[in-house]
Design a binder for these strands. Structure first.
Lengths: 258, 258
DNA sequence: ACTTTGATGATCGAACGTGATCGTTTTGTA
DNA sequence: TACAAAACGATCACGTTCGATCATCAAAGT
């Protein structure tokens, strides 16, 4: 039985009664537990089912978190682009963290998606993004730190003037960073404000982890943040072009593909 | 029988007659007493039923403004207390500002009400309150600055460890400050976190403006921020007790009554 | 024919849901 | 008021489910 056939059977069973138990799948599908779980994980990441303990069910309609209905700002529009991929990337990135560790998270719609998966890890998170602060606030175990500076509305981040020590005595093993585009020239962002903010973080991180969905490898943007050689790890999805993957591996960049 | 199915049955039964007895559930659901209790606990926490001794009933209608549950935090509850007075006080306080000036605003439900009146004044506002940042964000002319530090959930403020310079090179002619209570002993706050935050601000302000509705003169609270002599101006409403007004005038505190 | 890549299966420890038992609190009744 | 029964919350033990890792296998490319 092939993957495609299993998927079809699972979706059929879920659509039928709204729920299938894990046991039922094990009986109906001639496959090992591990394979069934992988199928379920894949189907959940593409948003077609929702996993619960003991099985899977029809996905709830999206959260009514946005009462106005329309996503107004460019940021809010961008959140929904490639959302399943970003969630999967965020999840994989969160797995790179060790409980209790101190990390830095740069603002961005992809890095935002790793926040839910940090719950329970008791992390210490330094971020310049007010969106990320908001996302982490309900997690009582997570300590949230902010640098000082001016709030930049358009980018929704906090940034201090050049040369000012805006995050005293902070140093972290890992920096999780987003980007507008990634190409042979390096990592790019929309504007120089974001570049300045990210460079500030990079100075204080031992390891730079880049979170980008694969569409970013096919686009280009205005301001260069750093060269590819300054990135230690890239978390992305399977759509990454082969030549980029090869080039990155040659540069010694660790690739995590979800 | 799975959790989801049990929940569905319980909600069905409650919606039917407005009440289900524990015994009825035990008969209808094939589950142990402990599991039923856990289901009820979960459903109550999400606000979908209300437990009573012996069973569960439909939840009392909540505040009309807040359809689903979350008026929970003390802060959000406190916003509506004496709201008209707080708005008037906020408006009067905003009048003390001169366009373009740099000011500091301490977190609190009264100081929050002065934010709308700052629009168009092109102020530079340093605040430690995320609520105030949020309120000022739509005002494109207002520059918002944040100190560095850890986010304290309960108080919704940013505060750095003692001795750390969390707001480099900032100095302001005025500090607008809230309080939990004001009495002969001085200005009081709920906890020492807030006291530390306000003392930090006071060190950098030339003039301290206190925003309190008159009910604060009749209450008391845990931690003392400063003596009355360290306050330069108090903005309050007409309900201020006469003896307090006299005492304050004797101390040279400027009183603004709205 | 050999290596590489991707999918599958097996195993382990950890997390979760469930059921049973305890002592305590509330309710109803004598 | 006093008492007994019911209901409650907390805790522990057990089985299941989960995710991660490693081993195995088949297909594709060299």
């Amino acid at each position: 039985m092939h993957a495609e056939e299993r998927e079809r059977l699972i979706l059929e069973a879920v659509a039928d009664t709204g729920f299938v138990s894990y046991r039922a799948l094990e009986a109906r599908l001639d496959a090992s537990p591990a394979t069934i779980r992988r199928d379920l994980t894949r189907l959940e990441e593409s948003g077609r089912i929702q996993r619960v303990h003991g099985g899977a069910k029809l996905p709830e309609d999206e959260k009514p978190d946005n009462p106005r209905g329309l996503a107004g700002t460019p940021f809010e529009q961008s959140i929904t682009q490639n959302l399943p991929a970003k969630q999967a990337i965020g999840r994989a990135a969160a797995k790179l963290c060790r409980p209790g560790e101190g990390i830095m998270i740069d603002g961005g719609t992809t890095t935002l998606q790793m926040c839910p998966y940090l719950d329970g890890l008791d992390m210490q998170v330094l971020t310049n993004s007010l969106h990320i602060v908001h996302a982490l606030l309900p997690q009582t175990g997570t300590r949230v730190l902010l640098p000082s500076g001016t709030v930049f509305r358009e980018q929704n981040i906090v940034l201090a003037p050049a040369g000012e020590d805006s995050m005293p005595r902070f140093h972290a093993p890992k920096l999780f960073m987003g980007a507008a585009a990634v190409g042979p020239q390096g990592v790019m962002q929309q504007d120089v404000i974001l570049v300045a903010a990210e460079r500030r973080f990079m100075d204080r991180a031992e390891e730079v982890v880049l979170l980008v969905d694969s569409s970013k490898f096919r686009s280009s943007s205005g301001a260069i943040v750093c060269g590819l050689d300054e990135v230690d790890t890239i978390v992305t999805d399977a759509g990454i072009p082969q030549d980029m993957a090869d080039r990155l591996r040659d540069l010694g960049v660790k690739l995590v593909v979800v």
